[in-house]
Amino acid sequence: MSTVLVVNAGSSSIKYQLLDPDTREVSAKGLLERIGQAGGELTHRVGEETTTRRGEYDDHGEGLQAVLDVFEEVGPSLSEAGIVAVGHRVVQGGKAIDGPRLVDDALETEIDRLASLAPLHNPPNLAAIRVARELMPQVPHVAVFDTAFFHDLPDHSATYAIDAATAEQYAIRRYGFHGTSHKYVSAQVAERLGRDDLRTIVLHLGNGASASAVVGGVPVDTSMGMTPLEGLVMGTRSGDLDPAILFHLHRVAGLDVDALDTLLNKKSGLLGMCGSNDMRDVTKAADAGEADAALALAVYTYRLRRYVGAYAAAMGGLDAVAFTAGVGENSPRVRWDSLAGLEFLGIRLDEARNAAGDGVISADDSAVTVLVVPTDEELEIARQAAGFARPSGG
Results as ranks from 00 to 15, higher is better:
residue 114 L to C: 08
residue 255 L to C: 11
residue 28 A to R: 09
residue 376 D to Q: 11
residue 282 V to I: 08
residue 289 G to L: 12
residue 317 G to K: 03
residue 53 R to P: 03
residue 166 T to S: 14
residue 170 Y to V: 14
residue 197 D to E: 03
residue 150 F to R: 06
residue 198 L to M: 04
residue 27 S to G: 15
residue 101 R to P: 06
residue 275 G to D: 06
residue 252 V to R: 15
residue 45 R to D: 00
residue 90 V to H: 08
residue 187 A to Q: 15
residue 115 A to V: 02
residue 150 F to E: 09
residue 268 S to L: 01
residue 191 E to Q: 13
residue 314 A to V: 15
residue 236 T to C: 06
residue 289 G to Q: 14
residue 252 V to F: 00
residue 110 E to R: 15
residue 267 K to H: 14
residue 307 Y to H: 08
residue 25 E to R: 15
residue 27 S to Y: 07
residue 219 P to E: 09
residue 241 L to R: 06
residue 367 A to N: 13
residue 347 I to L: 11
residue 20 D to R: 11
residue 239 G to V: 08
residue 89 R to Y: 00
residue 261 D to C: 08
residue 145 F to V: 12
residue 144 V to K: 00
residue 117 L to Y: 04
residue 363 A to G: 02
residue 158 A to R: 14
residue 329 E to P: 03
residue 325 A to S: 12
residue 255 L to V: 00
residue 302 Y to A: 14
residue 128 A to K: 08
residue 173 R to P: 03
residue 213 A to S: 12
residue 7 V to S: 03
residue 245 I to G: 10
residue 303 R to S: 05
residue 342 L to I: 05
residue 13 S to H: 02
residue 88 H to G: 02
residue 19 L to Q: 04
residue 364 D to S: 07
residue 105 D to F: 01
residue 55 G to A: 04
residue 285 A to N: 06
residue 135 L to H: 00
residue 366 S to F: 10
residue 298 A to T: 15
residue 150 F to D: 00
residue 150 F to L: 10
residue 30 G to C: 01
residue 56 E to I: 15
residue 216 G to M: 10
residue 274 C to L: 05
residue 7 V to F: 01
residue 168 E to V: 03
residue 187 A to V: 10
residue 197 D to A: 07
residue 276 S to E: 00
residue 77 S to P: 01
residue 110 E to K: 15
residue 201 I to E: 00
residue 230 E to S: 11
residue 181 S to H: 07
residue 145 F to D: 04
residue 169 Q to S: 14
residue 194 G to L: 05
residue 146 D to K: 10
residue 231 G to C: 10
residue 8 N to C: 10
residue 48 E to M: 07
residue 1 M to I: 12
residue 97 I to A: 13
residue 35 I to F: 05
residue 105 D to G: 13
